[in-house]
Design a protein around this nucleic acid. Structure first.
Lengths: 320, 320
DNA sequence: CTTTATTATGCTCAAATTGAGTATAAATCC
DNA sequence: GGATTTATACTCAATTTGAGCATAATAAAG
């Protein structure tokens, strides 16, 4: 059975390189030259000859092509080419009729994000994920009604709707970014479903800015993973400069979670877990000056892996 | 740049198919015909032509070759072929000098494990991971002294030793299975390091039964993931029969964690999260009959993702 | 130079959760 | 029938959360 013939694939390493600019989480994107002009995640091929591991390969092309200093790198998921339209000639040197591509998604964190135009804000692609100003309107106005109609009386679909969106009677869970996106994809609610031919008509409402291929799915995976990780590992500091105020840490965390946190309790967590230490300097800004802190490196070793327990704020009961 | 030449790889789907037999977690293995007789994980190639996703491909060959009913499947990690000796002809039909292999590791859970001889107990491969009868002797007698000598005055190595093994002054963390294995591999403390040529001499002490290629690493990844997941998602029930006593759930959990849990508190968690409901029937065994429960399906939907918070028992202070 | 707005930080307090028990019940084994 | 085994109910102090009030230190406004 000529296995090597049918089983041979190319490997793409795709990266969701995340940073935070102001109060917006952003993600490095590359522009698209095709008719739709949808942005995509940067990616590069994996050359097993040249790189001992895939992570080394990834770091290499990120350094070469973006000159970014990415500290934290984590493998997300490996996608067989589901939903990937093999659009275009994909390199005119193609020897096979059609070469299959498997893409390995990575999450990387960067402290800086130069060249603002190349960084795309998370919540432009996922407007329903930002709850910092209360429940996003797009949910009640667009998404939920459509999804409810789509699920009809199908028990499975209703359960998934309940699980992913908390509709009608459960709480919103900020970690289920991927579940929500996949549900919307299946329901034909995002442009990619149309592009992949799952959906006859182009959807009218613009439910966030689409991305190339399965890149929005990869970004959703990255968001889910980062939101979850934040709560049990001190990864926020991979996004912070060397010294910072506690409020800056909180704002960054809130940006990623898409939720507002309780200030005093947030600080209590930081203090209890000894994640930061004072630098002795003060920041100067608008109001009362804040103390400047730095991350305690050895905290990452702490065997009880304290991230930031999320003392979130209930938007209903709190006056903002 | 003839990219498709150097970048083409084969994809293996390797599976750590886990079950629990009695009080031992086990893992499906296939025997090895080579000189060393090390067992390996079952794996099969991924045919992108035939299967839309890799998970479908995986399920397919598991069903075909093992006839097992695996419910839960989760992708673990994708390994570029680091440390994989390309031993043997690897199919005599090889067209290239040497075909690169990328292996995608999966974790699958099975409720049954027929044919006992094909299932290998976790702790035969990882004897230092089972703390149910107190701290394993092999740690103080073999592993720690060797690792301490290996780390010498290297600050980085000492930190890793502290982090992974809790040595000398931190607590053991049951989730760091992979970190510990990797450290031992680097230190040349496991047979695979010798097999991969990282180590001149065969190590004298038998630190657990070795496996083929990087399969013990994949199993370690599976163990880490499962131990972590147990604590925030109700996955134990994927290993339980349709009806069970609470003690059975606890024994299964303890087997996987390699730790003893506090009985009353364990039950309190189950009750609070409404993970199970009574069937009305009773078990008959040695002592007082226990009530039989079944898993509440809709509990998996619960937005607050209750797994089993681990009310562990401190082996020092408790009389067993 | 006093007021106001703004941000930072200290402290409290009730509710909930955890960790570690004690006490008692209902079977089987011999 | 008593010993043994297993199951389950209940307690209680310590800790951790969630929510909030109060106060401090600065810049900008008047």
């Amino acid at each position: 059975m000529d296995k090597s013939h049918t089983a041979s694939v190319l490997i793409d390493l795709s990266a969701a390189i995340v940073s935070v600019r102001g109060d917006q989480p952003v993600c490095l994107t590359v522009p698209d030259v095709s008719e739709y002009q949808t942005p995509g995640l940067p990616f590069g091929p994996f050359y097993p000859d040249r790189h001992r591991t895939m992570e080394i390969g990834l770091r290499q092309w990120v350094v070469e092509q973006t000159a970014l200093d990415i500290g934290y790198v984590e493998q997300l998921y490996t996608f067989g080419d589901r939903g990937r339209r093999s659009e275009g000639p994909e390199g005119a040197d193609g020897q096979n009729e059609e070469e299959h591509i498997v893409s390995v998604g990575y999450l990387a964190l960067s402290k800086q994000c130069p060249q603002p135009d190349q960084w795309s804000e998370w919540y432009k692609h996922f407007p329903w994920e930002d709850w910092r100003n209360g429940r996003p309107n797009i949910l009640n106005q667009q998404i939920i009604p459509y999804l409810e109609a789509w699920s009809g009386s199908d028990e499975i679909r209703r359960l998934r709707l309940q699980q992913a969106f908390g509709f009608p009677d459960r709480a919103w869970n900020d970690e289920f970014v991927l579940d929500r996106y996949e549900l919307m994809y299946e329901a034909g609610l995002v442009w990619e479903a149309y592009a992949d031919g799952r959906q006859k008509e182009k959807i009218s409402a613009q439910n966030g800015i689409a991305m190339q291929l399965d890149h929005r799915r990869i970004l959703a995976t990255a968001m889910s993973r980062l939101r979850a990780k934040l709560k049990y590992r001190p990864v926020v500091f991979e996004l912070m400069p060397s010294s910072f105020t506690l409020t800056q840490v909180q704002k960054t965390t809130e940006a990623i979670l898409g939720a507002i946190l309780h200030k005093q309790n947030f600080r209590r967590q930081l203090a209890k877990n000894e994640l930061v230490e004072p630098t002795g300097q003060m920041s100067k800004a608008r109001g009362r000056p804040a103390e400047l802190f730095k991350f305690r490196q050895d905290a990452s070793q702490s065997s009880n892996l304290p991230g930031l327990r999320i003392p979130s704020v209930n938007p209903e009961t709190s006056r903002r």
